[in-house]
Design a protein around this nucleic acid. Structure first.
Lengths: 337, 337
DNA sequence: TTGTAAGCGTTATCAT
DNA sequence: ATGATAACGCTTACAA
């Protein structure tokens, strides 16, 4: 019975060419020091001559392990997760691990589809972005032999490894920064997308600091769906206020803040003298605006690296790997506030 | 002999639970219409009860095929390739294909390592970014059973599938755009990174159109390594010229152009009246600058989609798939020129 | 429509 | 240091 097979040479071809058994060639790849020097040299030559590439599918099946790490991110090309993804990818590559990637667009169903497909590859680890999943996903990852790492969010009560930062602390830091600069009338501009739980935590941190300073926190929610437009809309609405005209605004993210800066420029506003603007995210354009945007940089790359670190330690068989890694954000003081 | 195995249920477990043979369950996943309705229902229930996930490693080995597409990009988080990557990822997901990803940072050696590792997965296709590879990579892909798709660059003489656009045409379009607006003293600012062959092709297109219009093309190469600084440096150097002070500048990419716009703003220059600035790439920040940047948008998403299209057609067994897909760029007229 | 048997190319186990 | 053999979990080929 002849089956379809690839035309690529196999371990058996290499072994035949240099007169050893397949297992010796297999060992040469995985534990070269255990193969005699002469045999090693013959194998090396044969591998090169045949242009042999090990079949990882077969190896993965036989060993029930794989050198792949699967990750699901909300999106690849946006300004938010790309640095984390890049850092993860680079870190994995350094350790000879490969990256299987899918984007969910914040849909838990899409995440579930990706997780389901990925688990079929027996990845060395599964890296997710967020702690909110469908019940089926929860069941899948609970039953999975693979370690699961949740990034960006941080919930110490969950069973998965956690790598993230405190959004509440971000809100606190932003409020303190503006208070320290002498502002008192400080508002918070939400994004129009309802259900951004992280942004609500940032608001809570802001409110906490304001109240501690004896000031009343207040938020404004624009209606425009496009973040840049929403930012512009919020700026105009708040400047038009007679009472409680703000001195400083904390925006839920840099996109909103960018919309506000551009709108302010076109209105002839002097920034930050007339109004201080503060963002969140330190997106790639933040230093390219005029005035450049003061904001808070989340530890995006650091999270990618921390996830790699966990994977590598687990691969090495370490058992005392910390389950929660809390990283700090950094205030980036620029011109807009 | 007991081997380590995953604790996950197997096809055999599902089959035993519902009283059919493994092959029937296997068929239910791949060709559900060939399984009787009653059997289908029992299988569905068993799969759900056991939370069964097919082992793709085993399936891939048995069928010598996989539902994975491997891609190597220079970088993930930069403004250039991210949209292509995102489009590819999304398109693959729609067709139930998965993405294996690595970044090369423009290193052909890194690309070779990635290609070597990826081929071990028997991917359905290999997508590369650029047509320049090490000899070993060339040998690997020549001997590979997998189709190879090269994107961004375009070289019809190469054996691989080509999905890209003409950089020369980009240069022509930029020059014509500025000529049409009445400019005559038009210069080209190279990036300081030597060996950017694509940028040189864009220069050639610009030079071609200038000469056809009876004008002398000229280029300037800044020395600063950082693109934003290089752009600023070029602006200052060229404005200081007594003779041949330019009316318009085409920058090799949007990063350079951005540096020039910011420098111009801080110098109090009126843009575009005092100087028209034109970029290439339509990076995410292009519409956030003041003045917003006129530039040329490469068909980044379209390339991702075209690559998916090729993969899907080949998977479906089509034989008359076009080997070269040339896509058009789009001039994005904004405020800076 | 369903089933049997034989692999796919590698690695784990045990033996020499 | 090296090898023989039996898995790993699935799909192909063929048969019923």
């Amino acid at each position: 019975m002849t089956r379809r097979r690839t035309e690529r040479p196999t371990l058996a071809d290499v072994a035949a060419l240099c007169g050893v058994s397949t297992i010796t060639v297999s060992r040469w790849f995985r534990e070269p020091q255990r193969v005699a020097p002469e045999a090693s040299e013959r194998i090396r030559a044969a591998v090169e001559q045949l242009n042999y590439v090990p079949n990882l599918t077969a190896g993965g099946l036989a060993s029930a392990r794989s050198r792949v790490v699967a990750m699901v991110v909300p999106n690849i090309s946006g300004p938010i997760f790309a640095p984390t993804l890049q850092a993860l990818s680079d870190g994995l590559a350094e350790h000879g691990l490969q990256l299987l990637l899918a984007s969910s667009y914040f849909s838990m169903e899409a995440e579930e589809r990706a997780v389901r497909a990925f688990l079929g590859w027996n990845p060395a680890a599964l890296v997710l972005t967020s702690r909110f999943h469908t019940p089926a996903t929860e069941r899948l990852i609970a039953g999975a032999a693979q370690p699961v790492i949740e990034t960006w969010d941080l919930d110490p009560t969950r069973p998965a490894f956690q790598v993230g930062f405190s959004h509440r602390q971000v809100g606190r830091d932003a409020a303190r920064y503006l208070l320290d600069r002498g502002h008192r009338k400080i508002g918070f501009v939400h994004n129009s997308a309802a259900g951004d739980l992280s942004a609500q935590e940032r608001y809570a941190g802001y409110a906490e600091v304001m109240q501690a300073a004896g000031l009343a926190p207040w938020g404004h929610t624009p209606t425009a769906a496009d973040p840049m437009q929403a930012g512009a809309q919020a700026l105009e609405a708040l400047l038009a206020r007679k009472r409680q005209r703000p001195e400083a605004l904390i925006f839920a993210n840099d996109n909103l803040a960018c919309g506000a800066i551009l709108a302010g420029q076109r209105l002839g506003l002097r920034l930050p003298q007339d109004l201080a603007i503060f963002g969140f995210g330190d997106y790639a354009f933040a230093d390219k605006l005029l005035p450049s945007l003061s904001t808070i940089r989340p530890p995006a790359r650091e999270m990618g690296r921390a996830a790699v670190d966990i994977v590598v330690r687990l691969q090495a068989g370490e058992t005392d790997v910390a389950r929660v890694v809390e990283l700090r954000c950094e205030v980036v003081a620029r011109e807009s506030a």
